[in-house]
């Protein structure tokens, strides 16, 4: 291991001086393209679709609706980024969102007070986070399989709670939480950006954000350095579940009803966003800015194609392909960084 990698590093070791400082050791131009390529893609998408569709795409209304459409997904993306930065999967986010939405919706439509209803939804998030960490962190069960099962179970629970019907007549207060307009945008959009901003700060500027990476990348040395590895992983899963549960509450407030079948369409984009995002900004690492840009790349692409008359199935093909491309690219990016 040691020897096999050591001599691969020789060229970069010697060329490092020529290119100055950067993460990993590419040429400056290549590094720039790698970091901002995704952002560039977003800009190109916007320009191309604006030229092709000046009347439908290039309108303020369209951009507002794209922002609203992505607000809940953005929350889930941030939630997912927490455990993934620490090297663990959490597939239960979509199921949890649906279940917490269902619990809150049913309680509120039965006349329970707004605060109690929302607290119950968030409470479900805490319970799921607690179970997830108990199994994954304490017992060491594989996170992918655990949360896959959890997601399916929670999706079923949503049907049970809502009696397999669409729950309507939600109180005004909840609708205000999800729909109220501020500066021309719905409250969910602002909440999504706000939480993303907090997560970005935590990831980039706090010890916790770095410990997450450390714990994911080298749990052994993290432990010996005095990092409470299990506490860090627990915190990541708990925060993830809490945000996902909150997304459920916001979702029903925004849509104005609770449809238990809604959850499944929310799982793929967060994954595509996080993985694709890891190929930009801080290349090779799960990072929030990259994930947000990736999410908008997907949304703008799909919206543009649909406005040009593409069939609805295009979005599935687009998202699925994007996820596969994203994991491949992030693997290649990480590998080239190691090599260089």
């Amino acid at each position: 291991m040691i020897v096999r990698s050591e001599e691969e590093t020789v060229p970069a070791e010697q060329s490092a001086g020529r290119h100055g400082r950067r993460m990993g050791g590419h040429s400056a131009l290549l590094g720039f393209v790698e970091r901002y390529g995704l952002l560039l893609l977003l800009v190109v998408e916007c320009v191309v679709f604006s030229l092709l569709l000046p009347d439908t795409f290039a309108t303020v209304g369209n951009f507002k609706s794209m922002a609203s459409a992505q607000a809940i997904t953005l929350l889930l993306t941030v939630a997912l980024a927490l455990p993934l930065r620490g090297g663990e999967f959490d597939l239960s986010i979509a199921g949890l969102m649906t279940a917490s939405g269902a619990v809150t919706a049913v309680l509120l439509s039965n006349g329970v007070s707004l605060v109690v209803g929302i607290a119950a939804g968030l409470g479900l998030g805490l319970v799921v986070g607690f179970v997830n960490t108990g199994l994954i962190v304490r017992l060491g069960v594989d996170s992918f399989v655990t949360t896959l099962g959890m997601s399916t179970a929670l999706g079923g629970l949503a049907y049970a709670v809502s009696d397999s019907t669409v729950v309507v007549n939600l109180p005004e207060g909840l609708l205000a939480l999800g729909r109220e307009q501020f500066f021309g945008l719905q409250s969910v959009v602002w909440i999504g950006w706000g939480i993303a901003l907090v997560a970005w700060y935590v990831f980039e500027f706090t010890p916790f954000g770095r410990y997450l990476l450390f714990v994911g990348g080298s749990p052994g040395s993290a432990r010996l350095a005095g990092i409470r590895v299990n506490a860090v992983r627990t915190a990541a899963f708990m925060a993830c579940s809490l945000i996902a549960a909150f997304a459920g509450v916001l979702l029903i407030g925004n849509v104005g009803q609770m449809d238990p079948s809604i959850g499944s369409q929310f799982l793929l984009q967060p994954f595509a966003g996080v993985f694709l995002g890891a190929t930009a900004i801080t290349v090779g690492r799960v990072n929030i800015l990259g994930a947000i840009i990736a999410l908008y790349v997907l949304e703008v692409g799909i919206t543009g194609l649909q406005l040009m008359g593409a069939q609805p199935w295009v979005s599935d093909v687009f998202n699925g392909t994007a996820l596969v491309v994203a994991v491949t690219l992030s693997l290649l990016a990480a590998r080239s960084r190691r090599r260089a």
């Binding site: 450390f214 080298s218 690492r285």
Partner: peptide, 11 residues
Amino acid sequence: NRQRDGVWPDG
């Protein structure tokens, strides 16, 4: 075990 316990390779 440097690789496992000493360094964070991707850091």
